[in-house]
């Protein structure tokens, strides 16, 4: 079966790149899984978990935002911040959580709705990570 080339990059460095069978991405309007020959596609990310599946192995990264660009040949996840799931610490996460809560408090109008959505995603992520 054909493989999908993937890149996971943050502004400060390249986190991972290689080939995989499939990548699960937390898109802004729902999770999606990119496989080889996926139609060209572009979506922002919501806070969530990016999972790279290759053969039997699975690697997960926690991302807090960014966007994903998918083409038939490969997928690029441009995350604002990304950390390997096993390496996520409670302090790191609660700092991000506090930021989201603060942003929600001060936001008004349309931004309030967006901030509430983001906070909700963060809370869901927290429960799935077990914090």
């Amino acid at each position: 079966m054909a493989k999908l080339a993937y890149d996971l990059v943050s502004p400060e460095r390249k986190l991972a790149s290689g080939e995989a069978d499939a990548i699960q991405i937390p898109g802004a309007e729902g999770d999606l899984t990119a496989m080889p020959e996926h139609a060209p596609f572009l979506t922002p990310l919501r806070p969530g978990v990016v999972t790279v599946r290759d053969g039997g192995s699975e690697t997960s990264y926690v991302v807090t935002g960014g966007f994903a660009e998918i083409s038939p040949a490969g997928a690029a996840v441009l995350a604002e911040e990304a950390v390997k799931k096993e390496e996520v610490s409670a302090e790191w996460f609660s700092a991000r959580m506090a930021e989201a809560e603060k942003a929600h408090e001060i936001a008004t109008g349309d931004a309030k709705t967006l901030a509430a959505l983001r906070l909700n995603d963060m809370k869901f992520l927290a429960s799935s990570l077990g914090f």
Partner: peptide, 10 residues
């Protein structure tokens, strides 16, 4: 050319 054909969501 490739990127001109992107689908966007939203």
């Amino acid at each position: 050319n490739v990127s001109a054909l992107y689908e966007y969501e939203p």
